[in-house]
Design a protein around this nucleic acid. Structure first.
Length: 103
DNA sequence: GTTCTGACCTGAA
DNA sequence: ATTCAGGCCAGAA
């Protein structure tokens, strides 16, 4: 195996760890999560990973939002995410205040 | 090998 | 506030 493969796997693990480390009532942006995973600028990569994430995952994927507290998901999924966040103590109306609930 | 696409980000008009 | 363009990473065609 090449060193890039192992490295990529390690970063992926770091991403899951960082995401799991996000407490309820707190949200992070894709770029920030990418930085936490040791890959600044790889926000798109994070989105790709979350998209392929299984439906029965235990990871708090709903705590990940786009820059400015904007929801990156389509209307339906976004509504579900907003609902979930509100249930965790993050009141939002289609947009989240990162100044208050941001990491 | 190139080209397109996607749960992105920033800055400018 | 909304729209556009350039840049970023990785996987699929």
């Amino acid at each position: 195996m090449t060193s890039t493969d192992t490295s990529r796997q390690t970063q992926l693990n770091a991403l899951y760890t960082a995401l799991a480390a996000i407490p309820a009532g707190r949200v992070v942006t894709y770029g920030q999560l990418a930085s936490l995973a040791g890959r600044p600028g790889a926000a798109r990569w994070v989105g790709s990973v979350l998209n392929k994430l299984p439906v029965d995952t235990q990871l708090p994927w709903h705590r990940v939002v786009a820059a400015g507290g904007r929801i990156a998901l389509p209307a339906l999924e976004a509504q579900k995410q907003c609902r979930r966040l509100a249930a965790e103590g993050v009141p939002n109306k289609g947009r989240i205040d990162l100044a208050l609930y941001g990491w």
